[in-house]
Simulated assay, not measured.
Amino acid sequence: MGYARAKHYLLTGEKIDAKEAAKIGLINGAMPAAELDAYVDQYVDKLAALPTQSLRWSKSTINVPLRQMAASMMDVGMAYENVAARTADHVEAISAFREKRKPAFTGK
């Protein structure tokens, strides 16, 4: 999923079903629950047949930029979460969730 689409879902909070998540690359596949165990078994067997060290190093290499990106955003994200948790809108969001109703945000 590209940055623009990720930003869209982050900002709107739109729900994504499994079929759409697979279509946009958020997950690598979607299938009926009855087929899941067989798929997982086949996938695990495929990975188990690969050279362990090469697989490990490839995974580590692919994860480097993800870790760097997460680290660069974590402090700012946590700070904003802390600030947001003290707002009237945050209290309203929790109340609306508990009361199973649509929130009425005021921007405060």
Rank of each mutant, 00 (worst) to 15 (best):
M1G: 04
Y3M: 12
A4F: 06
A6W: 03
K7C: 11
K7S: 12
H8W: 06
H8C: 07
H8N: 10
Y9V: 06
Y9C: 05
Y9E: 07
L10K: 04
L11E: 12
L11T: 01
L11F: 03
T12M: 05
G13W: 01
G13I: 03
K15S: 13
I16E: 04
I16G: 05
D17W: 02
A21S: 13
A22V: 01
A22I: 01
K23I: 05
I27E: 02
N28E: 10
N28G: 13
G29S: 07
A30W: 01
A30V: 01
M31Q: 11
P32H: 03
P32R: 02
A33E: 11
A34T: 12
L36R: 03
D37S: 10
D37E: 13
A38F: 00
A38N: 03
Y39N: 07
V40M: 11
V40P: 02
D41E: 09
Q42C: 06
V44R: 04
K46R: 07
K46T: 08
A48Y: 00
A48R: 07
A49E: 10
A49R: 10
A49M: 08
A49L: 09
P51D: 14
T52N: 09
T52C: 09
Q53S: 11
S54M: 13
S54C: 08
L55M: 12
L55Q: 11
L55K: 03
R56I: 14
R56A: 14
W57P: 00
S60V: 12
S60K: 10
T61F: 11
I62G: 01
P65Y: 01
P65W: 00
P65N: 04
P65K: 00
P65T: 02
L66S: 10
R67S: 11
R67E: 14
Q68P: 00
Q68I: 12
M69Y: 06
A70Y: 12
A70N: 13
A71N: 06
A71I: 00
S72P: 02
S72W: 00
M73L: 14
M74H: 06
M74R: 07
M74Y: 03
D75L: 12
D75W: 00
V76L: 13
G77N: 10
A79L: 08
Y80C: 11
Y80G: 01
Y80K: 13
N82W: 14
V83S: 02
A84C: 13
A84I: 12
T87N: 07
T87K: 03
A88V: 13
A88I: 09
D89Q: 08
H90D: 14
H90M: 15
H90I: 05
H90V: 05
V91C: 07
E92T: 03
A93W: 02
I94Y: 01
I94M: 13
S95F: 05
S95T: 15
A96M: 04
F97P: 02
F97A: 14
R98V: 09
R98E: 15
E99S: 07
E99R: 04
E99T: 03
R101F: 05
K102P: 08
P103I: 09
P103A: 08
A104P: 02
F105I: 04
F105K: 04
G107V: 07
K108L: 15
K108D: 15
